[in-house]
Design a protein around this nucleic acid. Structure first.
Ligand SMILES: [Zn+2]
Ligand SMILES: [Zn+2]
Length: 887
DNA sequence: ATTGGGTCAGCGTAAGGC
DNA sequence: GGCCTTACGCTGACCCAA
């Protein structure tokens, strides 16, 4: 025993308003060496600084460090000190920041509440991790009945005991996967399967019940889309909503998540605490006590008294109601007097009138009167008008530039040559010279890369000389055969789907975009009623699946005229390279862009080079945002972060975020950034902006992207941002640990998210499953890059403006490139492709989920979005426009 | 205002004496 | 071996200079 050991007197602790010791839970004595510690642990660490080499653990390096436990194991105690962040370097003297003080006080208050509720009574867990002989909590539902308690209890007693829980979720995943496998096998023989035509977009694409997570329902041999049956949890595997195995699978998953979090824990039963950012997790040591506790729900109302005190500890009462937040943050839902809200007119913090933020218009038009002619941030990014580069300024001679030349120069770096030859590009520095209506905002050759790169590059052979070989190289015989088989199969399936489309679409509400009749029947749609069915398989062949693999080498059937068809009339390449003369006159006559869409394909003929270029761009523009981590280090870092958070949670208990009302109240009264959310938001805003910049740079490298109309480019970036974000985050996601990386490059785990963002655990769960579903595709790096480009160019979003025929063609080329990649690696490329398409469809159904996720950050409320005009422009109309809730 | 660091009574324990 | 005394190391409550 130490000496003069004080009995734990919680009253004293409360009086001091100091959080308990992070090491031993004794009443806190302040912030020492970087952590809230007691006097004893402070002294111990102080001595340890001088000499700790002699520390030895008699047990298994996992001794419980707890006040009142007799002689503490030195080594374990020291390790605990380190783990809670104590360090010589962390010494900090001086006044508390108001934020920290507030956090401390709130934590103490919360602890007090919990103690009153009996949750902090010690003895719930003893040394062995088994239950103590005497149950302390009346009505505590910690019985062998819930089956999960032993595991949780074990893990709580410092044993690295999460194996059991992760084991369970592993089981769930195995079952899910098996189910998926089985079902996918069925689907390949079944009538119902995927149809995917990039020309008409995903929104008319049906995925099978078997593979699909789209809300489909079998009705005899027909399909109908049940838009109302949004399954709350489409598991990673994705199942039909009606199958028993699905239910089973879901149950397993649900139970596994329960075992991980405890029944109800984190959902309804967790108390909230606020702490400084370093110690995010707080409060109950015993998650058990929360788990299934009859007191659940009680915490949400009034357990945290947002009582904030001044720095000397006195409470600040309601008399401070008139306190005007120093930084003028507008707080919705608070009852600030109207005049005060009016006074608060700092433009940076005011709610932005996003109606004014048109897509390609300048931001903050009203507040920046002198910039009304300046391009918006995204415009600046997308447009090269700000840099001195070659512009095409007149549409009058589009025919002069042949796509073949463009393609050649794309790879061979003869940009200047073309420019001079055709006199179509001028060196312009003024945006005003560029007609916004003209599709070519910049040279198609400008790929957003320093043009010196092109100049210095050794010119290769002209494309026309090697085109034939390249074209045919993508499809060998076996592939063609296989593809033809699949094609025929898909053909009939699509036909079937189409029939059901026709049938069901009449009853579908007009607003349901997925089923919009006009979409289905639109001339450009492959699965239109006219073009579909066995009667016109060639149509399908020429535009749809066949083209995926054959690269047009064999499929030369020229798309039949389908009214005024844009991309549908893609002219497949002839077996021999098209002569320039041929290409010259093969212009699209529908979209008015003056470009021969079929020649977009030329930009993609050297698929390997396109892939390499995209991969390179992805690495330099996209990866950097997330903070590059060597693949071999990823797992270690994930684990480290997880361990850190788990340890904290073990010590301090689970923690959910301070809700807005509470935060706002504190803020109104004291002006304090209670849980540092404003600070966090600022960082996130920066990262998001960086990410968008990277995304734009990346997109610009997509061959053909730069040819698009400016507003279209903006729309594509704007509406793909979200999915790209998810796809990128997935690269660093670990399903077992539930750790991923945010755009800010910081590792985040479930525990972080639940604390930092007011997101429902179920939503987070769904998001993780979504991440996982992408991982399950097992794409390699290049394939993932291609997938991202496809996401960017996805023609089926409700983006504004609608994607052009040109854009669809780019998309189509990207899809073909992806298939080309898959062919190189897979025995069954089309099966994999189908899975990818299925995921893309899932992504579409998850759009709202992801949007809610991003919304939960509440950028517009808690950050200075005004200082991030680019981001604001990107987010406007998606997150903040209230009328945009439904789509 | 707070904390790092010093102080030293008090405690456990090992060694030595009887 | 059992019991007592002494020496020593660690602990932690307390104090205070910075
Ligand atoms: Zn302590
Ligand atoms: Zn130990």
């Amino acid at each position: 025993m130490g000496r003069k050991r004080k009995a734990i007197n919680p009253e004293d602790a409360l009086k001091s308003n100091l959080p308990p010791c992070r090491v031993c839970e004794a009443p806190g004595a302040g912030f020492h060496y970087g952590a809230n510690t007691c006097e004893a642990c402070k002294g111990f660490f102080h001595r340890s600084l001088r000499l700790h080499s002699g520390y030895r653990c008699e047990a298994g390096n996992n001794c419980v460090i707890e006040h009142g436990r007799g002689k503490l194991c030195q080594l374990c105690r020291y390790k605990k000190c380190i783990s809670v962040g104590m360090a010589k370097e962390a010494i900090k003297t001086g006044r508390y920041t108001s934020s920290k003080r507030t956090n401390d006080i709130l934590e103490v208050k919360s602890l007090e509440n919990k103690r009153k509720l009996g949750l902090l009574d010690n003895g719930l867990v003893n040394d062995n991790g088994s239950l103590p002989p005497t149950s302390v909590l009346p009505g505590h539902a910690l019985t062998s009945g819930d089956g999960l308690s032993p595991e949780l209890t074990t893990s709580l007693s410092s044993v690295r005991g999460f194996t059991s829980t992760s084991g369970l979720s592993h089981t769930a995943r195995v079952i899910s996967q098996a189910l998926l496998n089985e079902l996918s096998e069925t689907s390949s023989n079944d009538v119902i399967s995927h149809s995917y035509t990039p020309l008409n977009g995903l929104n008319q694409t049906l995925s099978s019940c078997a593979l699909g997570s789209a809300p489909l329902r079998k009705e005899g041999r027909h399909l109908s889309i049940d838009l109302d049956s949004q399954s709350s949890l489409a598991s990673a595997a994705g199942q039909s909503t009606s199958s028993d195995s699905d239910q089973f699978c879901r149950d397993v998953i649900a139970s596994s998540s329960n075992s991980l979090f405890g029944q109800n824990s984190g959902i309804t039963g967790t108390s909230r605490l606020i702490q400084n950012p370093l110690t995010v997790f707080a409060s109950t040591k015993n998650t058990n006590s929360v788990n299934g506790n009859p007191l659940k729900g009680d915490f949400s109302a009034g357990s945290v008294v947002p009582c904030v005190t001044s720095s000397n500890g006195r409470e600040i009462g309601a008399q401070n109601n008139n306190f005007l937040p120093s930084n003028g943050l507008p707080l919705a839902g608070t009852n600030l007097p109207a005049d005060i809200t009016q006074v608060d007119s700092q433009p940076d913090f005011l709610p932005v009138d996003f109606d004014q933020l048109v897509l390609d218009g300048p931001p903050l038009v009203s507040s920046l009167p002198h910039q009304t002619t300046a391009p918006s941030p995204i415009t600046t990014l997308l447009d090269i008008s700000t840099s001195s580069e070659f512009h095409r300024i007149t549409p009058s001679h589009p025919s002069v530039v042949t796509s073949a030349r463009l393609a050649d120069n794309f790879f061979n770096g003869e940009k200047n040559h073309v420019a001079k030859d055709n006199r179509l590009f001028i060196n312009s520095t003024s945006a005003a010279e560029v007609s916004p209506s003209f599709p070519f905002q910049k040279s198609p050759l400008d790929l957003g890369v320093n043009q010196n790169q092109f100049v210095n590059r050794t010119p290769g052979p002209l494309l026309s000389e090697t085109a034939a070989g390249l074209v045919t190289s993508t499809s060998d015989k076996s592939n063609s055969q296989q593809v033809n088989g699949i094609t025929n199969q898909l053909s009939s399936q699509i036909s079937l789907l189409n029939n059901s489309f026709s049938r069901t679409s009449s009853s579908a509400s007009p607003g349901q975009k997925l089923m919009a009749l006009e979409e289905v029947l639109s001339p450009s749609s492959i699965v239109s009623s006219e073009s579909m069915g066995a009667s016109s398989p060639d149509m399908l062949m020429s535009h749809g699946v066949a083209g995926l693999v054959s690269s047009g080498a064999e499929q030369t059937s020229q798309g039949k005229k389908q009214g005024s068809l844009g991309p549908g009339s893609v002219k497949a390449s002839s077996p021999t390279p098209a002569s320039e003369a041929e290409l010259l006159h093969a212009f699209c006559d529908t979209c008015g862009c003056g470009l021969d869409h079929s020649n977009i394909g030329l930009l993609y003929r050297r698929r390997d080079e396109v892939i390499a270029r995209l991969a390179e761009a992805h690495e330099s523009f996209m990866d950097q945002c997330f903070g590059r981590v060597a693949p071999e280090d990823v797992a270690a870092q994930q684990k480290e972060h997880y361990e850190q958070c788990r340890l904290k949670q073990e010590v301090f208990g689970k923690l959910t975020s301070l809700n807005d009302a509470e935060y706002d109240e504190i803020f109104i009264e004291t002006g304090l950034d209670a849980d540092d959310r404003q600070k966090r938001m600022e960082g996130l805003i920066d990262s998001m902006e960086k990410f968008i910049r990277g995304l734009v740079q990346f997109a610009k490298v997509i061959p053909g992207f730069n040819m698009l109309d400016l507003s279209e480019k903006i729309g594509l970036i704007k509406y793909s941002r979200q999915e790209i974000c998810v796809a990128s985050a997935t690269a660093y996601f670990d399903y077992d640990l539930r750790v991923f990386k945010g755009v800010d490059g910081k590792w985040k785990c479930e525990m972080d998210m639940l604390y930092q963002v007011s997101i429902a655990p179920s939503m987070l769960e769904e998001l993780f499953e979504f991440f996982h579903s992408l991982q399950n595709l097992g794409l390699n790096k290049e394939e993932m890059v291609l997938l991202k480009t496809i996401i960017i160019m996805a023609p089926d979003r409700d983006s504004e403006p609608q994607i052009s025929a040109l854009g669809r063609e780019v998309h189509w080329q990207l899809v073909q490139t992806l298939v080309y990649l898959l062919e190189k690696r897979m025995k069954k490329p089309m099966a994999q492709f189908a899975r990818i398409i299925d995921w893309l469809m899932t992504a579409r159904t998850k759009e709202k989920l992801v949007r809610e996720f991003f919304k939960s950050f509440k950028f517009e409320k808690y950050s200075r979005l005004g200082q991030a005009p680019l981001l604001r422009e990107m987010l406007s109309g998606i997150y903040f426009d209230l009328s945009d809730d439904e789509s």
